[in-house]
Design a protein around this nucleic acid. Structure first.
Lengths: 118, 118
DNA sequence: TGGTCAATTCAAGTTTTCTTGAATAGTTGA
DNA sequence: TCAACTATTCAAGAAAACTTGAATTGACCA
């Protein structure tokens, strides 16, 4: 993931409404959720939702597909994953302390990340 | 980590100059680097640097300490770690696909994170 | 083919963030 | 104390992001 894409993704995440969208859509998996249903669930005006969904999609964090009149949005797990990886690997250079600090629930798991290559 | 702190941290990370700062300071460890030296290294005007350092410190991603006339800035690994954790655990609810995608170098390591609670 | 529905685009205004040069505060050494 | 040095704060302007209502596009159905 290059610099500018990572930056776009981080900017996309740095907004309350868009974090709400990620939070809502992640459990929905690949099927995702129609824009109208999202708007209703979160109580957002349509243009505002469209704006934020588009920002997330541009940033590679969401996918969309049309079904009849509806547009279903779903999270792109690899987009989020690559963004996190950019911060950890590129910016923090796999610093062990940082890696240790971001794995509360899997203590030490990421600490080995410097030892293997994909 | 609560919502507003995570948001502040993500906003802080969503800026090119500030990612440069993290990238520069992480390898320096606890000792960190004096503001003047940072400014020289990155070619930034002093007020601009101060502005961004302050943003990062406010967000809990950097620490600072005074030594004589200098102010040394260093990364707070736990601040970055908690921010990442917030995205993975809270927003993505430990979604396995997301976790798998953000561990290029430690495949599957984070996948166990859903099994334990803090 | 006319009406309805879902979603996006547009335009305007507001708010927030960022940058810059000038001014300020605090520290050190002569 | 005075000058030099380090860093921050201030003020102003510029740029970017966000929200809102109105208008538009495209798909579906009677």
């Amino acid at each position: 993931m290059d610099r500018s894409k990572a930056l776009a993704a981080l900017s996309a995440l740095a907004h309350e409404t868009r974090l709400d969208l990620i939070r809502l859509l992640t459990p929905q998996g690949d099927e995702g959720m129609a824009a109208g249903q999202i708007a209703e669930t979160l109580g957002l005006a349509a243009p505002r939702l469209s704006f934020h969904l588009s920002a997330l999609e541009q940033a590679g964090l969401l996918r969309s597909r049309k079904v009849a009149r509806n547009v279903f949005y779903s999270v792109d797990p690899s987009g989020i994953g690559r963004t996190i990886s950019y911060v950890l690997n590129d910016c923090c250079r796999d610093n062990p302390e940082v890696l240790a600090a971001c794995t509360h629930k899997a203590q030490g798991a990421l600490a080995v990340s410097g030892t293997e290559k994909t």
